[in-house]
Design a protein around this nucleic acid. Structure first.
Lengths: 259, 259
DNA sequence: AAAAGCCGGCAATGGCATTCTCAAATTTTG
DNA sequence: CAAAATTTGAGAATGCCATTGCCGGCTTTT
């Protein structure tokens, strides 16, 4: 995986904690709460070194925690790559990551949280990747087009197509539907960077009078669905001869039935 | 695995396990197969009453079986209406249908088969309903339009919208995705009447030069997805203020980004 | 009315997620 | 450094369900 430290402004705001880090037991905070309304004053009165020490300690703890959580996530990704499904057991994740069951539940509220984390991670990667690609274009329509094609790839990506050591993303694509049903809010949040990008691209194209949509957000969503879940339609057509390609999805989005 | 409820016409020709008892007839049929082209002669030589008797017996058995199976299905539908999910337990189905666990597994290979049955039933109902509506129109585009709006309703249909004692179909819509992932072939088969209707409507519109699509089947599938699963997008947008309506889906399908 | 197959009730099995327990290991603190 | 506090590992225990097995009564057939 590439360096995840891409300081994208748009993303920064909506970044959701990958792991549910259990609130660190900061003993001092208990006493601080008694003088709630002047908490900042209290802080200022404390020697700076103390804050830094606490901060360092917390950072150390967080770093350790992140490393541990990451091992679970890596194990899960590798299991998915092998089994092409999200139906691995927690036990398998434990075994592969060489950590303990207890540890797992310390870092994730349950299996769904783990899958959500995988989903978030994937969306972030995809957003970076697509963003970089789109930025190579200047024409609004071409930017939209690139967005479409690449996003389609990300969601379709079968084992044979994977490049750059990326993971098999089909299992996640598949499970994302389930996720969206049980936990729409989280999924919405996770997808928002991607969604925001699309809305922007669409707005740009509209401004340039290259397209005309009544409601950019609604249209974006319809487009997003069409692109991301065309694999679903493929499952439902006979023969592998008939496969909806990225270009077909694109044409459908742009021209509808007038293609 | 052979499901016990295969009352399929195609299968009727082969030996039916329900009443015929001995394995000997199988051996006989093997020899009969050697002289394949006079198989019908052989049939004619059997006394007709015998065939009718067997047939009547089978029909009776089938009828009884169907009634029993139907009770499971009714119970499942009613549970879905109440719980708004397919996550009821088999035990609940048993209790409500006042039948036995044993009976359940005699008629369905498992829970997935039951859900598949609900799905099939729903699709058939929907197809009839939509078909009747579409046939009230003569203009190809209006036919397509009606198809779209009504199908959207069928898939979206929340409790508040239900009429005519129809069931809450959201749980099935939701689960159909899962179903399509685990069992694409069955789902494809179940959806084929609906799919065929859409392809025809689209072909008619194309013939009338009202639309122009490169690949009717692919476009139909994209359209179908857009219509049937726009509820999915709704889950992913903030606030219930923003809801993709049937008309929006229709516009998107027809005009794409040029609406 | 005996034989044969069907059926209801219900206990048993098995897979898996999630929790619980406890003692060893590690970190923090005085 | 050593006691106290916290984290962690190992894995047993629990709970939920789907699915199977078993047996004694109940029809239907012969």
């Amino acid at each position: 995986m590439g360096s995840p430290e891409n300081g994208n402004d748009v993303l920064a705001k909506s970044t959701v904690p990958l792991v549910s880090t259990k609130p660190e037991p900061v003993a001092a905070s208990v006493t601080a709460l008694e003088t709630a309304d002047n908490a900042s004053d209290t802080k200022d009165l404390e020697p700076e070194w103390r804050q830094r020490a606490v901060s360092r300690s917390l950072n150390a703890a967080r770093s350790r925690a992140e490393k541990r959580a990451q091992r679970f996530i890596d194990a899960a990704f590798s299991l998915m790559d092998e089994k092409h499904t999200t139906e691995f057991t927690i036990q398998e994740v434990i075994d592969r990551s060489k950590q303990s069951l207890r540890g797992f539940y310390q870092y994730f509220d349950g299996k769904e949280e783990l899958l959500l984390a995988l989903f978030e991670e994937t969306i972030l990667e995809a957003t970076d990747d697509i963003s970089a690609l789109v930025d190579q274009q200047t024409e609004p329509m071409e930017r939209l087009h690139q967005f479409t094609v690449r996003l389609h790839e990300w969601c379709e990506a079968s084992e044979t197509k994977r490049k750059r050591g990326a993971h098999d993303r089909r299992p996640i694509s598949e499970f994302s539907v389930q996720l969206a049903i049980n936990n729409p809010e989280r999924v919405r949040l996770a997808m928002s960077p991607l969604f925001r990008m699309l809305v922007e691209l669409l707005n740009d194209a509209t401004a340039a009078k290259l397209v005309a949509v009544a409601n950019p957000r609604h249209t974006s969503m319809l487009m997003m669905q069409t692109i991301m879940y065309s694999w679903f339609g493929n499952r439902l057509m006979d023969g592998p001869l008939s496969v909806i390609t990225a270009e077909e999805a694109w044409d459908f989005c742009v021209y509808g039935l007038r293609s």
